[in-house]
Nucleic acid binder design. Sequence first.
DNA 1: GTCCGAAATGCAAATCATTTGCAAGTTGTA
DNA 2: TACAACTTGCAAATGATTTGCATTTCGGAC
Lengths: 139, 139
Amino acid sequence: MSQKVYEDMLREAGVKPTKVRVAIMSFISLNHGPHTVEELHENSSVTCDLVTVYRAIGLFEKHNLIQSCDFRDGQLRYEYNPEGGDHHHHVICRTCHAHEVVPLCVPDKWRKILGKLGYSDVSHQLEFFGLCRGCTDSG
Amino acid sequence: MSQKVYEDMLREAGVKPTKVRVAIMSFISLNHGPHTVEELHENSSVTCDLVTVYRAIGLFEKHNLIQSCDFRDGQLRYEYNPEGGDHHHHVICRTCHAHEVVPLCVPDKWRKILGKLGYSDVSHQLEFFGLCRGCTDSG
DNA sequence: GTCCGAAATGCAAATCATTTGCAAGTTGTA
DNA sequence: TACAACTTGCAAATGATTTGCATTTCGGAC
């Protein structure tokens, strides 16, 4: 599959498409589900330093190519942020840390409310925590 | 002011009301706005080790006396979690890190949706990030 | 009042994700 | 081809949070 797609994706976002960045971007957009930095480092098709992964995702996040989520387990996770803001959220099991996507998101009208409060360019971070079926039963 | 209120609050939640814990609980419930562990350590009326504050808030959180929020600046913050779940969320300025309470929360019916997905005892973490008026103008 | 065991605390040190400094390598462009 | 700017790797620093362990404190039993 052509790397060109990802190169363009980066270029359009204003990020210089280096080999490492293209590899990471490609992995992220092909593999759903939030990934830790460690996972990105291990699974990207290019070998590079962990620090380089940190720097790449830092850039990606700044340019809104990815979004981060906080599962409250000490490390942030990152996932692809499709154009058009069709992002999503997760529910995480407090016990076994399983997680899945949840088809819920805050209403768009809230953006207006926050605008009236004086905030522009508003994004949000939303995650649900609960006990999954298995852990509820065995707990 | 009687410490008794806070002692009872802790006891009812199943937390042994030690001097340190009562002091921290009292500070948290009297002073709104999320506080870092460092702030709690500095401002509580009792002198104790930072580690002790960490252990106290760990307990408080486990017993739902406080909720944590993540401003994405490297340290978690904690705030009082009133009985009845009348918690709230914040909007944080991405530039100057100012923050304020936002009168928005996810609809209660979402709890049912998550229940159908198999999750019980569901809580959530929601924060908004944007540019405040000052930073929008000067940015 | 005194004694006992469990739990809480302080202190020092360990963890561990993330960041930073710097020298060397790479890239786009004139 | 050469230059300046940017990217990367490596080593080390940071900084919040956690852990181990010895000591102290607390509530109840005697």
